[in-house]
Design a protein around this nucleic acid. Structure first.
Lengths: 189, 189, 189, 189
DNA sequence: GATGAATGAGTGTTCATTCAT
DNA sequence: GATGAATGAACACTCATTCAT
């Protein structure tokens, strides 16, 4: 039985609390300033000493990766819920829009896709989840059948990055996604 | 009248040559390693001393900005030539594809959008140029008339970033752009 | 009556066991990596928590010192046994050779002389023991009578350190000691 | 033509001065506190910023190695002068005594022989020099002919380390070396 | 008494920027 | 103008030591 959520088996209460605090602080800090922000700042925002951060995440990269895992986990959970209770015809678009909206204010979401972190492994999970949404949408006939998961993931990444780096507002986001969704839906010209 | 960022007006011959060399080196270095690469490395590749780099570009950011300007200028020139001699119906798509292809191998193209550089100003030029291509395409009836320049620019930026950070290969690039182009062309569902 | 450095008098059974484990682990770890190895590593090898190490030895230095005491005690015991049952004419040389051989594989033996530990006090015991061997050897006429204990101790320390730091093999060790032993035996020129 | 002394070909005057200052400071600091002393302290004593130290010696190890080279060079020079103008029968002993005397106050001399620095290469030079002294002494009949260079080097290292770590005073040094010299001179018992 | 999480000063190293040569 | 040495703040990471659990 694979567990998606597990990272604190047998940990003292205070340690768990600190781990959570650090992750939260890291999320905020890296979301605002990107992965280049200093670990020291994360510690400060979490209200712990620098050593504590490194005890929980021996490397800055480990911290970044943990953040990433957490994010992927949340996203996967969201997909799962959409699969279970959402409208198969629109779930893909709903999720797509939501992710991009989220990315527009969180540098983390985006930075993590780049750099030297071996994301692949983590992203695999998300990829599979999105694959289900795509299947559903294609089964419902609202997405062309020759669209591959690769392109959907690529568009997802691209728009997430675009939304962040270029600071799209809600309106622009909507209009831009509309074009992409149209591209996914309609018959090739 | 001294200017912080000289650009070619009234400059000793060797200074001009150095400026050009530095820009070329910076392009290479930053393209390969991203904006995080050290100025020292740029100087080395340019074959000048570090002081010379800082004399021409008082700040690393100034160097990055200059690179950006140069890039925009090239792109604008390309657009202009397309406007003059290209097929109005396909020029937008041609340019779009070309930019993204270029971005996929040049970290610069993309990173520059990220830093703290106020791109807006520089991008204005490019924006106007692309505006012309869009007008042409809409006039030719191959792009829906309710598509705004904003969305086109957003898609341009997003795919450039996506192409680089996620390392799209030629095939994925083509398939992804096909979806976007379809979205631009067809009638909204 | 609480004592800073407990040594076995009135101690819970498990505490005694832990103390012994820690000393054994420390011996191994420091022998292999020198005194610069981390206390944490010692704790790990001993299978106890870091706090336990510091409860038994309030300072890293205290741990090092205890190790030293232990070593001196063992050596003194060895000397005692030689005094009781060995050949008075060769015991000094036997002990000398054995100590150096041992030093060549145990960084501890040597490093401990380096730190800031005031060895003198601990070494007194060993010194007295070696003094007996020297007396015996001089009585047997195999060591010049004007050789003082000071020099013997100095040579002992020097060769121990040399053997370790320079990594003497058995052959080199033997040949080098042969020279020293000759120096101790023969008449001054 | 091999050059023993070369390290500053084409260097700005101030850079040379600083390099020398740093080496001098490093010698003092490491001599007093051992190789574990901080680079920062070296910088402070040299009166330069920390960056300057690292510009000249990109790694702490590089600094240590440079110190070592310098030391070996001096020693080799001393040997060379002894070979040229000294009494072949006593030069080896003179040099031996001098090195140990020096070591007794300089942790550097000794620390450098240990740790992870690849000394071998550097020591080769010194080894060869001492080899000449040994040959001379054996030719003069004052050192047994079956004494090998290996043992002499081993004794040299051992006594240097001993002299330092155990803090021999002049008298003890003399008496201890007397025993070793006797061992080298007389016929094996 | 044992545990192991938290602390925080300290270390080696990098790099944008300044300035004497 | 060009050179390249000097500066020093910043950073990731380590480790002896303390203390709440």
């Amino acid at each position: 039985m694979t567990q998606l959520v597990n990272e604190g088996n047998a940990m003292r209460a205070d340690a768990q609390r600190n781990r959570a605090r650090i992750l939260a602080a890291a999320d905020e800090v890296f979301a605002a300033k990107g992965a280049a922000a200093s670990t020291e700042e994360v510690a400060a925002k979490a209200g712990v000493a620098i050593g504590t951060v490194f005890r929980h995440f021996p490397t800055k990269n480990d911290l970044l990766t943990a953040l990433m895992k957490e994010l992927v986990r949340e996203l996967a959970a969201e997909v799962e819920s959409l699969v279970r209770q959402g409208d198969p015809a629109t779930s893909l678009f709903t999720f797509f829009a939501h992710l991009v909206e989220r990315a527009s204010s969180r540098k983390t979401v985006v930075d993590l896709l780049g750099v030297d972190i071996r994301v692949s492994e983590q992203l695999q999970l998300l990829r599979e989840a999105v694959g289900i949404l795509l299947d559903q949408a294609q089964a419902a006939g609202v997405v062309r059948s020759n669209v591959l998961l690769d392109e959907v993931m690529a568009l997802l990444a691209a728009t997430s990055q675009g939304a962040l780096h270029s600071g799209w507002d809600a309106d622009l986001r909507e209009r831009t996604l509309a074009i992409i969704f149209t591209g996914l839906r309609s018959a090739q010209l």
